[in-house]
Design a protein around this nucleic acid. Structure first.
Lengths: 234, 234
DNA sequence: CGTAGAGGATTGTTCAACGATCCCTCAATA
DNA sequence: TATTGAGGGATCGTTGAACAATCCTCTACG
């Protein structure tokens, strides 16, 4: 038996993607880019017809996305792109504060593996230079996903990936992404620097402030938009 | 328009569930109680026949439980009750330490709402008196779910509910539930007392020790059982 | 003893059908 | 005018069947 360790990673690339997962990928990115805004109903017939997949396959894709909380399923009514309430947004930040701060606090001795964080900061800087505010938002999320990854827990990573995907739903409702995301570029950089210098407590302080400010800023504009927009909460 | 605020809570009750969800409920509790031990193959034919549902519906239920990590799906072989690896158990405890400790640390000023915790302690004591070690294990899990509930976050509750359900899979593999669960009765009580007296830092210390000991005790016997039992890890 | 292959059993996938539910429309009534 | 109720159309939920693909077991053979 020859060397096979390197092959394990390739298995993910191989057949392991079912039709339903590919459909879910398509729908997920459509939702992420705002093509299907929150509140939109996704009809089995029209979507299945457009994508050329059977109803069963499509329903499996719906189920995947429902599990990620991107869609909500109402019996005999179909699936809808989730409309977050303000309480949802607050709960998302409750989870973020709980988990992200715990990750920072639980770090062992420095140095820390901050390569991913540095890459996300660079990604955000590049997006800002290109005036690509949606890209800035994505880089922001990448930064915090990398932060969570420092805990080295697959389950935590998965949970937070889903939480961040949900958060993106709120971002699509607000109309001024620049004001919402740009200020946090510098603060992510600060956070990175604190971690690079091995200062956990300072990093935790920065992170807490970050999350508090981010939540209040988001809730302000979000509540206004939801109220005026009259998104189909039902 | 009359007073309708009280009715909002009742909506959850009349929210009907699909057949697939009800089937998933049944299978979930069967797995939780050990009727289907880890490694068991769940045949579409026999289960569908016994429950009187069609294959399509049953497969939907399987998918729901697969998303919850209680079942694993092997292509062309069917679904099996998940067999946790030691790495899985370790990751579960990584999540528990991260989240449960963060919950305790994030508590505000005392007094805390420890009614649920007290009830779980009482439940455990009663089960121990009745020599019902599986009941002790359940009460243990209830205690920690109540602990997480102190954070007041729906999402955190849901995540941890799923994590605890997964953990139960490991419990079913070990053969001496008494030795595994009984020692923690007293420690839960200690934890409760620390919280009742408003001592967060002491509670966090107790909790950390608890989780460390619980993990090492579980991994010891679990690794042995998995190795000798030769559960169908394939 | 080991291997190749046939056959049976099980799963993967799709489709069509029918009942159930929801939503919308419209008419009747107070 | 506002409310109620019936009807119809659209969509979802579930079933059953059919066929292909795959796996497992057992047998026969070298």
């Amino acid at each position: 038996m020859a060397e096979l360790t390197g092959l394990a990673d390739d298995r993910a690339l191989l057949g392991r993607t079912s039709t339903a997962e590919r459909v879910a990928d398509i729908l997920r990115s459509r939702i992420a880019e705002g093509y299907f805004p929150p509140g939109t109903r996704l009809s089995e017939d029209s979507i299945g017809g457009a994508l050329g997949v059977s109803r069963n396959t499509l329903r499996e894709a719906f189920r995947l996305l429902t599990h990620e909380r991107l869609l909500v399923h109402e019996l005999n009514r179909g699936v809808f792109v989730r409309v977050l309430t303000v309480e949802d947004v607050e709960d998302i930040y409750r989870v973020r504060r709980l988990v992200e701060c715990a990750v920072v606090r639980g770090l062992g001795r420095p140095p820390y593996a901050v390569d991913g964080l540095a890459a996300a900061v660079a990604e955000g800087r590049a997006a800002a230079r290109a005036r690509d505010w949606k890209g800035v938002s994505t880089a922001n999320i990448h930064f915090h996903r990398e932060l969570v990854a420092l805990a080295g827990s697959d389950r935590t990573d998965e949970v937070m990936r889903s939480v961040f995907a949900e958060l993106r739903l709120a971002f699509h409702v607000v109309d001024d992404p620049r004001r919402l995301h740009e200020p946090y570029l510098a603060r992510n950089r600060q956070l990175l620097e604190a971690l690079q210098s091995g200062d956990r407590t300072e990093a935790e302080r920065l992170l807490t402030e970050y999350l508090d400010d981010s939540l209040s800023g988001l809730v302000d504009t979000y509540a206004r938009r939801v109220a005026e927009g009259g998104l189909g909460t039902r």
